[in-house]
């Protein structure tokens, strides 16, 4: 395996295609992805930001999850999952080709649109789907560039493509018309899900999703992501945002000295003095917050009314995460 190098993924793909090689071009970074090349032509691409063939077929209900899993179990080792689905009569050749073409161009956009990233070429690597379509590399690269331009024509803000999506609380005009996909996106956007999460959850192409999100941003129907501080490190794990005005549940109220208060008058500290510690509220009424539990003996169980309460389940995100893990594990086989 050659050492990882930083290069333009598109340039390396052209080079590999020129030499008519077979293998996988693995692009790191965020979102990253992989483009599979067979004798210099693209046969498949995958990226965490774009639902793959399996997700598209199962989340739409076209194939039962079990059918897809069976095809994977049988065909992964011999790289003919796609052919099996057609031979067993689950899909027509036309459907398979159209689905693979769509998923490939979609993932290729996310994988190749970055100007520079860490790039690896794994010679003779093949994809378990098997060669279904053979696309000219130049056509893929040309289309990737065109798609990037199309997005900027709609609304030139690439942060929308990756940031969690929050619909505005109040539309900026009295009458709003949205398309079906925009509606789906708006009602599933919860301020936590990223465009990639939404695409996987809804079984929609990743590019079509960000295209509609840019349109929604242009219409003023989703919040624009906050500008990132330039010298802040890249966070690969997105932590829940602290909302202004939210009261932290784990920390006590800030003591005035610690808080950066107003400017001190005449160099004197504020003359308010230290406020007395807040009275511990009486147990019982209005005292059910998670930090207001009465002191318990070590090992004692939680009070019944709290213990039975399940933690809030964020089903969509879990589903998406599990699907991704499953896809990643399959790719390792």
């Amino acid at each position: 395996m050659p050492p990882t190098k930083t290069a333009g993924p598109g340039d390396l793909l052209s080079q590999v295609a020129g030499e008519r090689q077979t293998g996988a071009l693995v692009v790191g970074g965020h979102p990253g992805g992989a483009v599979y090349v067979f004798e210099g032509r693209v046969i498949y691409a995958e990226s965490p930001a774009a639902p793959g063939v399996g997700e598209l077929l199962t989340s739409s209900g076209r194939l039962a999850g079990r059918t897809w899993q069976n095809a994977l179990d049988l065909g992964t080792s011999t790289a003919r999952v796609g052919r099996l689905l057609v031979e067993q009569g689950h899909l027509t050749q036309g459907e398979l080709e159209l689905c693979v073409l769509g998923a490939t161009y979609d993932a290729a956009y996310f994988t190749l649109a970055t100007a520079r990233a860490s790039v690896d070429f794994l010679p003779s690597a093949t994809h378990w789907l098997g060669p279904v379509v053979h696309i000219d590399t130049a056509a893929v690269l040309h289309e990737v560039g065109r798609r990037a331009e199309l997005l900027d024509d709609i609304f030139p803000d690439p942060r929308i493509d990756t940031a969690p999506v929050s619909p505005v609380t109040r539309p900026p005009r009295e009458r709003v018309t949205v398309t079906a996909l925009q509606w789906e996106l708006l009602i599933h956007a919860d301020g936590q899900r990223t465009p990639a999460d939404l695409a996987l959850l809804l079984g929609r192409a990743g590019y079509a999703t960000i295209q509609e999100l840019r349109r929604l941003a242009a219409l003023g129907l989703i919040e624009l992501p906050e500008v990132r501080v330039p010298d802040a490190p890249d966070f690969f794990v997105r932590l829940p945002r602290h909302r202004p005005g939210a009261v932290p549940v784990t920390r006590p109220a800030p003591v005035p000295e610690a808080a950066p208060g107003g400017p001190p008058v005449d160099g004197m500290p504020p003359a308010r003095g230290e406020p007395p510690p807040p009275e511990p509220p009486p147990p019982g009424v209005g005292n059910t917050g998670p930090n207001r539990l009465a002191r318990r003996k070590p090992g004692a169980k939680l009070p019944k009314e709290l213990a039975t309460e399940n933690p809030p389940v964020h089903q969509g995100t879990d589903e998406v995460l599990l699907k991704r893990i499953r896809t990643a594990l399959r790719a390792l086989r």
């Binding site: 598209l56 077929l57 159209l98 769509g102």
Partner: peptide, 10 residues
């Protein structure tokens, strides 16, 4: 329009 059950707009 090619109507597919999975998401494609062709």
């Amino acid at each position: 329009v090619v109507q597919t059950e999975f998401d494609s707009r062709l």
